[in-house]
């Protein structure tokens, strides 16, 4: 056990990464923050639409899109990657809808069938391609991701200045576009999520917004894929949004809380991974989950505390909430 959990050396765990390995640490943490932010923002809308597990499905099946795109074009650069991911994501949604609407199989089974099949095909293709020659995608990396490799990428140069590792820049662009998108289309996303019937009656194309969100989801997940892997990307989608939902009943506040969650869990997770010498992405998710547990505990305690007279507003709330209907 001693070997498993190294002694906590404050200097090694907390100080050294920033004094000695700053160039290394900054990119990993930045990547973690960006992944957590982008995934978390999309995840908020997934949760509101009760589609958390569709996010799970898409992040798995993207592997198939990546490997097929690689086998066709024989290289993996950003446009190819995005195209593959987009195709795989939309294919997953389409398969789920087909099975759900055209057969008697219910939607939960349909989700499970769609993504496990596509993922299995993806893993098999990766294994076959590996035996034929070097592949950019590695089956294990699919699961854990290799966020620690991010700082080792040859940086993108702008003139003579090294801007940063390409995957971080790509993630930054995707995150930026996502934030701008949410700011611009806040009201459309809100109404199609809250009351699709009303939205449709006002002439909004709910289908377009649905597929738009799925597109955003695919792009975010594929950009996060190499650093955190498929399953941890699911965690990044769901956990920050749940954390925010636990703390605030107000959507804009939730979106901001999501970003805060991303920053804190990325930082804590990075140091945890240095301490325990384990996967950084995994540690970030563990910290994120602990943050949720903390929020859960806080709200549970607050609910258990008897409503004091100093809060007439909330006592009114409770009696109103218990009315029939």
């Amino acid at each position: 056990m001693n070997q498993l959990i190294p002694a906590f050396d404050f200097h090694r765990v907390v100080i050294a990464p920033w004094t000695e390995g700053f160039a290394f640490s900054i990119w990993i943490v930045l990547m973690g923050v960006l992944v957590g932010t982008a995934c978390g923002l999309v995840g908020n809308y997934l949760l509101l639409r009760r589609m958390a597990l569709v996010g799970d499905a898409i992040s798995h099946s993207i592997l198939l899109g990546l490997i097929v795109a690689f086998l066709i074009f024989r290289h993996v650069d950003t446009p190819v990657m995005f195209a593959g991911a987009l195709a795989a994501g939309l294919l997953t949604v389409a398969i789920i809808e087909f099975i759900h609407k055209q057969t008697r199989v219910k939607v939960d089974s349909a989700i499970c069938i769609a993504f496990t099949s596509l993922f299995a095909l993806g893993v098999t293709l990766v294994s076959l391609a590996e035996s034929a020659g070097p592949v950019h995608i590695d089956a294990d990396c699919v699961l854990y991701g290799e966020i620690a490799l991010v700082p080792l990428e040859p940086p993108i140069l702008w003139g003579q200045v090294a801007l940063g590792p390409p995957s971080v820049l790509r993630m930054a662009v995707v995150t930026g576009v996502l934030i701008v998108g949410i700011l611009c289309f806040y009201k459309e996303l809100l109404i199609t999520s809250f009351d699709p019937a009303l939205a449709k009656s006002m002439g909004l194309k709910t289908g377009v917004w649905h597929y738009g969100l799925m597109t955003a989801l695919s792009l975010v997940v594929v950009s996060a894929f190499e650093s955190v892997g498929a399953i941890l990307a699911v965690a990044m989608l769901i956990v920050p949004a749940m954390f925010a939902a636990q703390l605030s009943p107000c959507l804009p506040v939730r979106l901001v809380l999501t970003i805060g969650h991303a920053v804190i869990s990325a930082l804590l997770g990075y140091h945890l991974s240095i301490w325990l010498k384990c996967s950084a992405a995994g540690a970030m998710v563990v910290c994120g989950s602990l943050l949720f547990a903390l929020a859960w505990a806080v709200t549970a305690l607050r609910a258990r505390r008897p409503v004091s007279t100093s809060e007439p507003e909330s006592s009114g709330l409770q009696s109103a909430a218990t009315l029939p209907g």
Binding site: K187, I191, F194, D195, A199, M202, C250, L251
Partner: peptide, 19 residues
């Protein structure tokens, strides 16, 4: 037909009428 746990307040919902 809607989820009343949705994170919006009364004003937000009424504003939707203007969308």
């Amino acid at each position: 037909s809607v989820d009343w746990d949705f994170p919006v307040n009364v004003m937000d919902v009424v504003l939707m009428g203007r969308y």
